[in-house]
């Protein structure tokens, strides 16, 4: 597939790549290094770490350990980074409601401020992926929908289905639907690899490509029904169900009317 290499030579590719590389380095550096420092301006940050630690001790430490070192039922959080916390807690997956196969997306337990504090606390433990807020805001400008679709089908569709509706994994696990995911959450998931999902490293799927993927997903979220009711966008199974119920049902109904004597 020669065409896939073409956006290497896209006229924005060089500058954009540089910009994002700088930005990513900058953010990572600031999150990783700024937190342990106790400069005069870092009073707010320190309090945020403390606040985050308090929330952590109340809500997370029973599984993840008092120092986030992990336990028999939960992984260590040292080095997972702020992005991971923001994704897991911000989408309501953590804290888990029960010990099921998989943490489900649900209503977040904590307010955005509390999530932010938790993220700062976990990020202060060791360097890890930072929350990519500002990078993602620009997906509309820097992403390419069609290329994003190509990347999505190569890297994501096998689990999340061709239209991002999600799909089954082994032993009761599943890849969730992406229809409610925000651009930031999608970005966080790609760089942190939550739960069953693998990590998509920046050298393998570049930040620019990630933005294209996000742009495609956003377009899929808003995809209008070009041919009528979408029926879940899961392929031929729902089509088969419809023809065996509504289709043949309507026609049998009419046949019964046709074969009944009029009065």
């Amino acid at each position: 597939m020669r065409h896939l290499s073409k956006y290497r030579r896209h006229r924005f590719a060089g500058p954009m790549l540089l910009l994002f590389a700088l930005f990513m380095i900058g953010t990572t550096y600031s999150v990783a290094n700024a937190t342990p420092k106790l400069s005069t301006n870092s009073f707010a940050k320190t309090t945020a770490i403390d606040e985050g630690r308090q929330i952590f001790l109340r809500g997370c430490s029973s599984c993840h350990g008092l120092n986030a070192e992990g336990g028999s039922i939960a992984p260590s959080l040292i080095g997972v980074g702020a992005a991971s916390v923001d994704f897991q807690v911000g989408t309501g997956r953590m804290p888990m409601a029960d010990m099921s196969q998989q943490a489900m997306r649900k209503k977040p337990l904590y307010t955005p401020e509390e999530v932010a504090a938790l993220a700062v606390y976990v990020a202060s433990l060791a360097p890890g992926p930072a929350i990519p807020t500002e990078a993602v805001v620009e997906y509309a400008r820097d992403g390419n929908t069609a290329e994003g679709g190509e990347l999505f089908r190569s890297n994501c569709a096998m689990c999340h289905n061709f239209a991002g509706q999600g799909g089954a994994l082994s032993r009761g696990k599943y890849a969730p639907s992406l229809m409610d995911s925000t651009p930031v959450q999608i970005y966080e998931a790609m760089i942190t690899g939550p739960q069953s999902m693998p990590v998509f490293s920046d050298k393998v799927v570049t930040p620019e490509e990630k933005l294209s993927i996000i742009k495609w997903i956003v377009s899929a979220q808003n995809e209008p029904n070009l041919g009528g009711a979408s029926m879940g966008r899961t392929g031929p199974v729902s089509e088969g169900l419809l023809i065996w119920t509504l289709g043949i049902g309507l026609l049998i109904g009419i046949s019964v009317w046709l074969a009944t004597k009029a009065r």
Partner: peptide, 21 residues
């Protein structure tokens, strides 16, 4: 090389838990 993208990759480009097509 990556698919799509056709970029060669180094071992260090992949984090633990990462995949590449």
């Amino acid at each position: 090389v990556t698919d799509p993208g056709d970029r060669p990759i180094k071992a260090s480009d992949l984090e633990i838990g990462a995949v590449a097509q």
